[in-house]
Simulated scan of single mutants.
Amino acid sequence: MTDQRFIGRIAGVGTTSGTRFVVGMWRESPLGGITDVMVETPEGRRILLAPSVEAADFIAATYTFDEVRVLDVAWRKIAGGLRVTAGSAPVRTASTGSAPVGAPPVGSPPAADVLDLRLAVGPVSALGMLLRAVPRGLATRPGWLRLIDPVARILVPGSATAGTAGGGRREFYGVTLARRVSSLEARFEGQDLGALARLWPPVRFGFGSAPAAPSLVDVTTTIR
């Protein structure tokens, strides 16, 4: 067995239009520092926005999507929160084998023709306070996450800490801190998606969803 770890943050939010987002902002991963966005539309269409063919192939082998797009995806801090963008580089599916889309020149503003998502991030949530009570070294261990999974599914409906992923893999989510997302501005494919809403119904990319309460969590994801 080989464990592959993604260390960073996940933002999970809904919108009043019904579109829901799960954004992975990974400072460490087998693919390097990357950002990916999983989108589920009100009609239930599941879309992956990935920054390279390599990332798209890996993520699509672990989760389920109806469409995979390879294009420039990035995030950065802004006053009071963060901004996630996906640019209008040529859309390519992960199966084409085309070379990854190159990053924009250093210092240039991120393109946002496909997605522009701005999140206002608030204080540590009640869930975050509870998570602080668990030692970080324990909180990310697969054995611990398997043990507490039944409790996590009850305490945070729609979420899970352990389960079966695609390609014969198992996956473990070790969340160590949670903050509230208090508001958003979101445009996807030129459409204004409205105001912040609960991430409900749960997204259907894998065995679990992000919490229904809009949140930004510090997480270590282990794929075995």
Results as ranks from 00 to 15, higher is better:
residue 81 G to Y: 12
residue 62 T to A: 04
residue 136 R to E: 05
residue 97 G to L: 03
residue 112 A to R: 12
residue 169 R to I: 07
residue 122 G to R: 12
residue 61 A to N: 13
residue 73 V to I: 03
residue 72 D to K: 08
residue 48 L to M: 13
residue 147 L to Q: 00
residue 176 T to C: 03
residue 54 E to M: 05
residue 142 P to I: 11
residue 78 I to C: 10
residue 188 F to Y: 11
residue 139 A to V: 03
residue 126 A to K: 11
residue 163 G to A: 04
residue 149 D to Q: 04
residue 101 V to T: 13
residue 57 D to M: 07
residue 78 I to V: 15
residue 159 S to T: 15
residue 91 V to R: 10
residue 124 V to W: 01
residue 178 A to K: 12
residue 178 A to Y: 02
residue 84 V to S: 14
residue 165 A to P: 05
residue 185 E to L: 09
residue 75 W to N: 14
residue 68 V to L: 10
residue 126 A to G: 08
residue 161 T to R: 09
residue 121 V to N: 12
residue 134 V to T: 15
residue 65 F to M: 04
residue 185 E to D: 12
residue 167 G to T: 09
residue 144 W to S: 08
residue 144 W to C: 06
residue 79 A to K: 07
residue 75 W to Y: 15
residue 167 G to N: 07
residue 141 R to T: 15
residue 108 S to Q: 10
residue 89 A to N: 04
residue 70 V to E: 03
residue 172 F to G: 10
residue 83 R to I: 01
residue 112 A to Y: 01
residue 53 V to K: 13
residue 59 I to Q: 13
residue 103 A to N: 00
residue 190 G to H: 04
residue 151 V to M: 09
residue 114 V to F: 06
residue 188 F to A: 05
residue 181 V to Y: 06
residue 73 V to Y: 02
residue 156 V to I: 09
residue 96 T to W: 07
residue 182 S to N: 14
residue 86 A to C: 06
residue 141 R to Q: 15
residue 74 A to D: 10
residue 143 G to P: 01
residue 167 G to Y: 06
residue 56 A to K: 11
residue 88 S to V: 02
residue 155 L to A: 15
residue 125 S to L: 00
residue 61 A to Y: 08
residue 155 L to C: 10
residue 153 R to P: 05
residue 187 R to Q: 05
residue 182 S to A: 14
residue 58 F to L: 14
residue 87 G to A: 06
residue 168 G to V: 01
residue 179 R to H: 08
residue 82 L to C: 12
residue 99 A to P: 05
residue 153 R to N: 05
residue 84 V to F: 11
residue 51 P to S: 04
residue 72 D to W: 00
residue 92 R to M: 13
residue 133 A to W: 01
residue 155 L to W: 07
residue 50 A to T: 14
residue 86 A to F: 00
residue 101 V to M: 03
residue 119 L to W: 01
residue 178 A to E: 13
residue 51 P to I: 02
residue 60 A to I: 10
residue 106 V to L: 00
residue 146 R to F: 08
residue 115 L to S: 08
residue 179 R to Q: 05
residue 189 E to Q: 15
residue 102 G to R: 06
residue 159 S to E: 03
residue 55 A to S: 14
residue 144 W to I: 12
residue 121 V to R: 15
residue 49 L to M: 08
residue 109 P to E: 10
residue 106 V to N: 02
residue 106 V to P: 02
residue 123 P to G: 15
residue 49 L to K: 12
residue 165 A to E: 00
residue 172 F to V: 11
residue 174 G to I: 06
residue 123 P to D: 14
residue 101 V to R: 06
residue 71 L to A: 11
residue 105 P to A: 06
residue 65 F to Y: 11
residue 53 V to A: 13
residue 55 A to R: 12
